[in-house]
Amino acid sequence: MYRYVLYTLLGMGLFIPSVHARPVSYPGGWTLMTMNDGDKNTLHLHYSPNAKMSLGYKFEYWRDKEMTFNGVQMNNLLKRWNKKDSQANVYLKSGVGIAHSSEGKYDGDNSAAGFTGIATDWENRRFFASYENRYTEAGKIDDFFMQSARVGVAPYEGDYGDVHTWLMLQVEHTPESDDHVTVTPLVRVFKDVHLLEAGMNNRGEILFNYVFRY
C-alpha cells in the first residue's frame, strides 16, 4: 500500500520532501528546531541576519549508525517565488563539523564530517509540497545519501493568530538502509511562534518535531 502511494506521488511529479520548517527566518530572527524520528534526533539553532541565509549550530544523533554530529549549519535561500496566493522556495543546506561513532570497528572514532543538500517547497493556504535531499560524508565512519518528500493539505484556512492544522504524508528514501522507503502520515499544528508535528511511520516509529521562532 505504502509503495503504491510512493509510486503515485512519483507519477504525479510530487516527490517533494520536507523543508519541514523553513530553514531561513526573517531578518534578526532566531529559530530552534528539533526533529525526531525512527532514524535520528536532531537539534538546530540558527540565526538569520537577513531573509536569505541563516547560520547556526547543528546536533544530530543517528540511532542505527550510532553516530553523532556536532557542527555548524548554513542555510541559503537560493530562490523564492512570491505569488499572490502561493510561495515557492529553493534552499541550499550545508553543514560542517565533527562526527563521532560509537559503533563496531569505529567505536570511539572521530572524523571531520559535512553534508549538503537542496530543499524546495511550495505552498498555498490549502496545499503543501516539499522535497529535500542530502549527502553526508563522515570520513571513515560513514557516508550516505537520503531524500524525502512531503505533501500536505489544510482541512481549513486559519486566519492570522489561529491554530493552523495540516495533514501531511512524508516519504523518505534512504538507499542504503534495510527499508529503503518509509512513509509517515503526520499532523502539523502551529500557532504563533510554535510549530509541532507528530506522526508514525510504516515501521511503527514515532515522528515528533518542534520548531520555535523568536
Binding site: R22, Y26, P27, G29, N82, Q87, Y160, H164, F190, R213
Partner: peptide, 18 residues
C-alpha cells in the same frame, strides 16, 4: 505577495515591531 502562512505574518509583525 507571498503571504501564505502564519509564520509569514508573524515575521512581518516582528520586522515592523522594531
Amino acid at each position: 505577495n507571498g503571504l501564505v502562512c502564519d509564520f509569514c505574518a508573524r515575521a512581518l509583525e516582528k520586522v515592523f515591531g522594531k
